[in-house]
Design a protein around this nucleic acid. Structure first.
Lengths: 200, 200
DNA sequence: GTCTATAGCCAGATAGAC
DNA sequence: GTCTATCTGGCTATAGAC
């Protein structure tokens, strides 16, 4: 890779980082391309030399977070002596920490142009399927050893885990300002895995 | 109340119903005032004779759903032989059914002008406090009889219940098209109350 | 590839006749 | 109060100079 290409790569990386942060803070609809340009420190027209549209910007951020998720899955899979359930729990913990750090872009909004861009992106759909496949296997395994309720369709478990990564509850608790991030993560993780009802 | 005032009331009711449906479908940012006017069948300018702004329209819809919630709380409180935990569960079930019916407006978005309008509305803040107070009492009661984990701060439980009313999981499962609404409600309620981890 | 400047569009809000 | 027509501002996207 030439020096010039590296410069380009670094700049695009900075753009995606800004998009990622703004998506986490405001979501797609409230994020403006002007804000992205201002945060990166370049002119708006320059952004459009790198990415064709606002939707393409968001798609790049979603691809990056999915890539980070896939990397985390690989790390968890490589750990010895951990059950499938423990891996699922640790992944969820990681996602909650990322969200509290303001680095988790929101789920695709109901915006139809954004949805169209995402399903039209091979990089996005491929990564999403890869992540879902691995999680699906872990879920089935956890249901076989009865650490996850086998009566739940695996789909329900999968969607629930995805949803917890964007749950508004951690943000509300953090906004309250009286709990540490670690406490918030523990409590949200506990309600997710153990439920609100007390266990005997 | 005069006949003319009744006509007015009915029209405003129709407006709020349309806003409620559109908020449930698209959320605040993607809903347009033109869509509201079209759905009610009146001109946009006429809307502004009834409500001062788009934010005021949304606030009216939020007040209505809070009022419906307060009514539901009163109904549950009047039931004999139900524990606090059962009341909380039945309220959550009701909210999930409402959401699947497309009648649950989304939580306040990150839109700051909307938040300002809501906290500036006495009708909204009073009802929100009333609902939160009743739920808070039920939560404390359920923790005293150990049907809800007493280690969880009541605040965490309260926010979790509010969040489940707007959870994206039921919508995803419904979009999949292979499960009935009743099944979806049962599963989401089960994951909320019992957690993903199997109980012995 | 970067910039300034602007085109084009759309949505919230309003004017003014009836 | 309802309408049609219009204003206004902000946003995405692009033209064109350097």
């Amino acid at each position: 890779m030439s020096f010039r290409e590296q410069i380009l790569r670094v700049r695009e990386d900075a753009i995606v980082t800004a998009v990622n942060r703004l998506l986490a803070e405001k979501g797609f609809d409230l994020m403006t391309v002007d804000q992205v340009a201002a945060e990166v420190g370049i002119a708006k027209a320059s952004l459009y030399k790198h990415f064709a549209s606002k939707e393409a910007l968001a798609a790049a951020a979603m691809v990056r977070i999915l890539q980070r998720t896939a990397d985390k899955l690989a790390e968890l899979a490589a750990r010895e002596g951990e059950t499938a359930f423990e891996r699922l729990r640790e992944l969820t913990r990681w996602a909650l920490e990322l969200q509290l750090a303001g680095e988790m872009p929101s789920l695709p909004s109901q915006n139809s142009t954004l949805r169209a861009e995402l399903v039209g992106s091979r990089a996005y759909t491929d990564l999403l399927m890869q992540v879902s496949d691995t999680l699906g296997e872990w879920i089935l395994q956890a249901q076989r050893d009865a650490s996850i309720d086998p009566a739940l369709p695996p789909e329900v478990v999968l969607y629930t885990l995805f949803a917890r990564a964007c749950d508004p509850v951690p943000g509300f608790l953090k906004a309250g300002g009286q709990y540490s991030d670690a406490q918030i993560v523990d409590w949200v993780l506990a309600t997710c895995m153990n439920g609100l009802a007390a266990r005997q």
